[in-house]
Design a protein around this nucleic acid. Structure first.
Length: 108
DNA sequence: AGATTGACCGTGT
DNA sequence: GACACGGCCAATC
């Protein structure tokens, strides 16, 4: 478990996102220990081994924009899924002001 | 070992 | 607010 690659870390971190909340790629990358590796995170999602253990639909862009998602109807299914989880939406984007995962900002 | 790719991010115009 | 460019990081060919 010490030799886990960046991907493995992501696969272990993404499912930690609470329901009704979403995290940005850069955020996950930072939690992974490498802020700025947002691209590598995206790659991990694409290589997503199991949608059941890696809810990649909870990962959105920095502006809350739904990116990626090769499953179902793509971002369409992704949006519906997040919406179903109780995530706030602003048009086609997620309301990061209310639904962004604040695991490391939840010090209040 | 080197070069390329990728579901990104920030800044500038 | 939208479009264009460059930069970062890690995995893969």
């Amino acid at each position: 478990m010490k030799t886990q690659s960046f991907f493995e870390k992501v696969y272990t971190l993404v499912p930690k996102i609470p329901i009704g909340k979403v995290a940005t790629y850069g955020q996950i990358a930072a939690l992974c220990g490498s802020p700025g590796a947002s691209r590598a995170v995206g790659m991990a999602m694409k290589n997503n081994p199991d949608l059941g253990v890696v809810p990649c639909h909870r990962v959105v862009g920095s502006t809350g924009e739904l990116i990626g998602y090769s499953a179902g109807e793509g971002v369409v299914t992704k949006k519906k899924r997040l919406e179903s989880e109780g995530v706030f939406f602003i048009g086609d984007r997620v309301d990061l002001s209310k639904s962004q995962w604040a695991s490391f900002v939840d010090k209040a």
